[in-house]
Design a protein around this nucleic acid. Structure first.
Lengths: 147, 147
DNA sequence: CATCATGTAATAGTATTTGTTACATGACTT
DNA sequence: AAGTCATGTAACAAATACTATTACATGATG
């Protein structure tokens, strides 16, 4: 199953932005992510609507973080992306006419909902600031940064 | 994201098989599931290797359950399917050269692993027999069965 | 031996993420 | 005011994976 890596990607981008006071262009971010500038604009577009980032056109333009890293959790980023599907597995039919399938769905949904709820709880526990701190810890150990 | 419904599908099939003493053909099962016989053979093929079901060719042939419903959990079925991907989200790169991405991956994997572990724990708690019981409870309330 | 049912390969259909090109819009610089 | 830079978007191509379908071989039953 192909896995959606937008959340992973946008976190990567945000942490890089957090290291720069000046705006970073889509092109610069795309180089860091080894992808296309348009992809960057797409995933950051959703975050802009939530006022998490700010973009400016023209000379000296680009993207900047416009929120408090201490107050934003992974869950906020996740919802800003449009709350993409978490589970790669699901029920064949959500409203079956078959009682067998109803019983199956009930058991499956119970497990799925619990797993999803736990994931979201974890997401809510982690702030961008914590991720940034973790990055700096790793920086002190190794002295390299990807560019 | 398109969701893998094989687990849901195979449980549906197994519970129908549990209601019949005689073997059920792929075609009959496909009708119940509103899909193609080959799809049934494919998903049941993995279960046959684990000795969970048995298939016979020729007249009077078809599929039968060959395990104790009380001893088989959803997790056993899940692994018999080849342990398909659980999460629709994942990291961009698992072995990044970038420390920022390392920090992101660490946080994400922690949450992902926890969610997956919980899902598996739930799967292990539910036996096929329990699903079948739940089905019969629902049967008593409504008096219809899908065909 | 004819029929039935599985076993399997090959192919097409469908959906989604990701990557790319192209061009319009707006902002800063000279 | 013109030119350059960067975003904003639409449109399209590529890659991947589940699902569906067709075709035919294999084996078992009557």
């Amino acid at each position: 199953m192909k896995r959606d890596s937008r959340l992973s990607g946008v976190l990567h981008v945000l942490l890089h932005m957090a290291e720069h006071k000046e705006p970073l262009t889509s092109e610069a971010l795309a180089r860091m992510m080894q992808t296309n500038p348009v992809v960057i604009r797409r995933i950051l577009g959703g975050l802009r609507e939530q006022k998490l980032v700010h973009s400016e056109k023209g000379h000296g333009g680009g993207w900047r973080i416009s929120c408090d890293l201490n107050r934003i959790t992974l869950y906020d980023i996740y919802t800003a992306l449009g709350s993409p599907t978490v589970l790669a597995m699901g029920n064949r039919t959500e409203s079956p006419g078959c009682l067998v399938e109803e019983a199956v769905n009930a058991a499956m949904n119970q497990a799925f909902d619990a797993a999803e709820a736990l994931l979201f709880a974890r997401f809510r526990e982690v702030t961008l600031a914590q991720l940034s701190e973790d990055f700096h810890r790793r920086m002190k150990k190794r002295k390299s940064i990807c560019s």
